[in-house]
Design a protein around this nucleic acid. Structure first.
Ligand code: DGT
Ligand code: MG
Ligand code: MG
Ligand code: ZN
Length: 572
DNA sequence: GCCGTTTTCGGCCCGACTGTTTTCAGTCG
């Protein structure tokens, strides 16, 4: 798909046009087009072939012509013109905090700044500070921005951010008189990574709380500390933004601070068209405040139903909320079991009994013990003989422990030739078969996954793209082809909830569900603590607009057995 | 550059904070 190529081109053009002093609204038009194209669920080339480019919101005749030229010829004249006279490496300096397009243009024109080295030079020799409109403090703030820029580690995983935010919230509750308090921003929306941590507090005494906030023990740097806003850097170069508002604005502030930015702008446009105004302080008709204490009031005053944070991305949720037709998103309470966890039969250290008791404690009604298969020497894969032992143990435990059904399963390796690491006779005796690729990430991955899905005993493909958020992109795989075969064969795909995987991702899971594919949200736990990550997987599922009907492990066990049986019937 | 049951022209989300200003521009959320 060329969607992301075109989205990136428009985003770059927006940045360069802004740098060149182009009309802000034109710049915005490029930004919006970039976002919308990046978020499209379908191939833009398909829309183009149907001659429907201008049906895409934010795409008019001008941008449609540019897209058309690009798709026909592989080139975009306007893009080349815009980028032509811009030194490479200049525009990326806009990532530096406190250095925006105006200042960068000034430094470029007046002082021939073309890269980071040049910028450091004009800051060190004071020449930037001497330019009109500049000054010592502005220069100092840019220097601080460069320090952060050079140390920054990029976005952090949701699974790392969640415990951090919980700790800060606890600390604030212990040390101050906050009333309501909530995570906000991308973390509340459960994005797989977050650029920073955003927290909202309800208080009559903002300044006091922010003073306490910037003095927390883990603070390494204070970026700002006012009456309503504070911003700090904590250990690990992670930025935390705190916003404090009075009770009558807590709901509207939570709405604002949760975002996304595009969602906020869309809501505010709707309000404006109706003669209303939304800000973080409330929803207003002239001077009269219509609501703001509770988040629901913002939506209700626009005749929208309250929208769950996870889908607030301006990807159609506002239109659906207007029709009172939002999806009934799957929630943690709907989860009835975990269909992929490891025991001490393979590379985990937890016993099946411990796992079963933990699962019961979580209120699950079933749990599948899916250990690695025989060739997986890296993970103490289970030999056929030991597998039989395992079945025995599970059988005994199922009589011993009531209130939970332990399923015997496997995470069978898909080998280099596309065959599975157990013979069918063994797979046939498992309650559930999860198959996955753990080696040969660049070798005919698509064909191997397809071959695995064509096996009648394979029920779920685990971590279908193999990406690791912090380490690697994932397999070389044609996901469209995989999705088609998953749909045909009745094979479920996993949303692996392990924080560094979250695979399938939100967008891919949504595509899968749109094709009628069932998903299973599994923790792939190797430790009892890993069971906690189910909520991350549920977050991904909610961002994918999944309902309980889409998610295998919200179903009663009998229905799962039927699902497996149906595939077997079809493919045997 | 996009968009439209108040418009095909004249709008485009709204506010905090800082620093450089003598009334506001730039940056950020
Ligand atoms: N109305 C409005 N709200 C904004 C704007 N920029 C940011 N916000 C709101 C919505 C964001 O979710 C929220 C927090 O800002 P952040 O920059 O931290 O963004 P967010 O957390 O969504 O993403 P992140 O993962 O931090 O990059 O503030 C804006 O320009 N207008
Ligand atoms: Mg954020
Ligand atoms: Mg933030
Ligand atoms: Zn596993």
């Amino acid at each position: 798909m060329k969607n992301h190529i075109i989205a990136d081109m428009f985003e770059k053009m927006a940045a360069v046009l802004e740098f060149k002093g182009e009309m802000p609204f034109k710049v915005n038009a490029y930004r919006k087009a970039s976002r919308v194209i990046g978020d499209l669920q379908v191939d833009i080339e398909q829309i183009w072939r149907q001659g429907r480019l201008e049906d895409i919101p934010g795409i008019g005749s001008g941008l449609a012509k540019k897209i058309d030229e690009f798709l026909r010829t592989g080139r975009m004249t306007k893009y080349e013109e815009v980028m032509a006279d811009v030194p490479p490496g200049l525009i990326e300096l806009l990532e530096i905090q406190n250095l925006g397009p105006k200042t960068l243009a000034l430094a470029h024109e007046k002082l021939q700044v073309n890269n980071l080295e040049d910028l450091k030079r004009v800051l060190a020799d004071g020449s930037l500070a001497r330019l009109p409109g500049m000054g010592a403090k502005k220069a100092e703030n840019i220097i601080k921005g460069i320090e952060l820029y050079e140390r920054a580690k990029g976005r952090i995983s949701l699974g790392i951010a969640v415990p951090l935010v919980e700790e800060i919230i606890t600390q604030l509750q212990e040390r101050t008189s906050v009333k309501r308090i909530s995570p906000a921003g991308s973390l509340r929306r459960m994005r797989e990574t977050v650029g920073d941590i955003d927290i909202l507090v309800e208080t009559e005494k903002g300044a006091e709380i922010i003073a306490e906030f910037v003095h927390l023990p883990q603070v390494t740097r204070v970026l700002a500390a006012g009456d309503t806003k504070g911003s700090i850097i904590v250990e690990g170069e992670i930025q935390v933004d705190l916003r404090a508002v009075r009770p009558e604005s807590y709901g509207s502030a939570l709405q604002y601070f949760t975002g996304s930015k595009a969602h906020n702008i869309h809501l505010r446009e709707i309000a404006k068209k109706r003669g209303l105004k939304i800000s973080e302080y409330g929803i207003f008709c002239g001077k009269k405040q219509l609501g703001g204490s509770k988040e629901e009031e913002i939506y209700e005053n626009l005749d929208l139903v309250w929208i769950p944070p996870e889908i607030r991305e301006d990807r159609g949720e506002i239109e659906r909320a207007a029709e009172h037709n939002l999806p009934n998103l799957v929630s943690l309470e709907d989860i009835a079991g975990d269909l992929h966890v490891h025991s001490n039969y393979s590379d985990a250290s937890i016993s099946i009994e411990e796992i079963a008791r933990k699962a019961k404690e979580l209120g699950y009604s079933y749990i599948a013990i899916c250990d690695h298969s025989q060739s997986a020497k890296y993970a103490r894969g289970v030999e056929v003989e030991r597998s039989k032992h395992k079945w025995q143990e599970i059988k005994q435990l199922n009589t011993k422990i009531s209130g939970i059904t332990i399923l015997s399963g496997t995470e069978v390796d898909i080998l280099a030739d596309g065959t599975l690491d157990y013979p069918d006779e063994i797979l046939a005796q498992m309650d559930i078969v999860v198959a996955a690729i753990h080696s040969g990430f660049k070798q005919r991955v698509t064909e191997r996954l397809i071959a695995a899905m064509q096996n009648p005993y394979v029920n779920i493909i685990a971590h279908p793209t193999g990406r690791l958020i912090s380490k690697r992109e994932g397999y070389e795989v044609d996901l469209d082809a995989v999705l088609r075969v998953a749909a045909q064969t009745g094979t479920a795909l996993e949303i692996n909830a392990y924080y560094d995987r979250l695979d399938l991702s939100d967008v891919n899971a949504r595509r899968a569900a749109d094709m009628g594919i069932k998903l299973a949200i599994n923790t792939d736990a190797h430790l009892l603590e890993h069971f906690r990550m189910m909520r991350l997987g549920v977050g991904v599922a909610r961002r994918a607009w999944l309902e309980p009907k889409d998610v295998l492990n919200t179903w009663p066990l009998e229905k799962i057995r039927q699902f497996c049986q149906q595939k077997w019937q079809k493919l045997k």
